[in-house]
Amino acid sequence: MKLSQPNILVYDPNHAEEYAESVRESGFTAARAATTYEEAEKFLPGTEVILGWKFPTELLSSPNASSVRWFQSMGAGVNDLVTDSSIPEDILLTRIVDQFGTYISEYVFAYLLHIVKDVPRMRQAQTGRKWDSFLSDTLAAKTIGVAGLGSIGVEIVRKARAFDLKVHGLSFSGKNAKIVDHHFTSNQWRDFVKDLDFLILTLPLTNETYHVINRDILYAMKPESCLVNVGRGALIAENDLQAVLKDGHLKAAVLDVFETEPLPKDHDFYSLPNVYVTSHLSGPSTVAGVTQFFADNLKRYLNQQTLLGIVDRKRGY
């Protein structure tokens, strides 16, 4: 076991002190907060562990960062860190895992029900003081496809069962293949999407998944199917998606993530009637949740145990 607590630097442009105080309350008192480049540079000497979000990573290749051994990201997505050549190879990277399934699955089904039950029509009738007694659709017996069967995808599958959906899944490892009715691998995208009513993307962004949803895959989907992206924006070739939507193919696209964030105000996605845009909010990192994960990992670190959420840089997540 390590004999002393490591010096911890908590970096977040907006909430660093809140996170740092929560870390201290967890029993790790050697935690300092930084919100700017200058503060991070000042506190780096002697720092062994970083808990960070939007950290100025160029500092990690400076002499001031020679004591850093471990970088814990506050989020689940780490494609920016994995591709960052300024982070030395000997710094261990970890990400948050197993925390976002509840939030993101609720987001997904909020929109699926909104679309299937035609909530906009109901609201329009109320606003117009009109008695519009129409027959809405149901999720039951429709087919949902979940691309990415990690902890988030698993929770979406679990909730899909409650709505009596048929469940298809696509994953690279096949580890959770048994939880879906039909499993597909990464070389079976067209077969995977062709029968789906709903395609849900929860994949990480890697070289293999960059723009994996392109014009060919989108047109392989049924014209009345819906696409939901809660993974990473660059999973989708956005120009292709715009063209497909304007062509009237696909009933709806629910997009919480984008290649450029914030989404530019003049982007067509805002005005397309069959697109739902949200501000990367489906899976929030909370102070309590992040701190608990980090504290648990710190205990593992002190006991020289394998950490949770270790990032495989070759795999990309």
Rank of each mutant, 00 (worst) to 15 (best):
2 K>A: 10
34 A>W: 11
228 V>A: 06
234 A>V: 07
206 T>A: 08
119 V>Q: 02
161 R>M: 06
67 S>H: 15
295 A>S: 10
174 G>E: 08
68 V>S: 12
246 K>C: 11
210 Y>V: 03
119 V>I: 05
268 D>A: 15
156 I>P: 00
271 S>W: 15
61 S>Y: 11
185 T>P: 04
14 N>E: 13
292 Q>S: 12
187 N>C: 10
250 L>P: 06
83 T>A: 13
245 L>D: 07
152 I>W: 07
108 V>A: 00
112 L>M: 04
205 L>V: 08
121 R>I: 02
260 T>Y: 12
52 G>F: 10
304 Q>N: 14
227 L>K: 06
284 P>Y: 09
91 I>L: 11
191 D>R: 09
38 E>Q: 15
205 L>N: 07
70 W>Y: 11
56 P>F: 12
194 K>W: 12
253 A>N: 03
220 A>W: 06
71 F>V: 06
313 R>M: 13
287 V>G: 00
38 E>H: 15
87 I>K: 13
189 W>I: 10
197 D>P: 02
132 D>T: 02
251 K>L: 10
22 S>N: 06
280 H>K: 09
130 K>G: 04
57 T>G: 10
31 A>L: 05
76 A>H: 08
93 L>I: 13
77 G>A: 04
98 D>S: 11
30 A>K: 15
44 L>R: 13
127 T>P: 01
174 G>Y: 13
207 N>Y: 14
152 I>T: 05
11 Y>I: 07
35 T>C: 06
234 A>W: 11
177 A>R: 15
121 R>L: 03
199 L>W: 06
214 N>W: 12
9 L>I: 09
314 K>S: 11
15 H>N: 12
146 V>Q: 02
8 I>F: 13
19 Y>R: 06
41 E>L: 12
141 A>L: 05
179 I>G: 02
259 E>Q: 13
302 L>K: 13
144 I>V: 01
121 R>V: 03
99 Q>R: 15
105 S>H: 02
255 L>A: 03
97 V>E: 09
244 V>M: 12
169 G>T: 00
118 D>A: 07
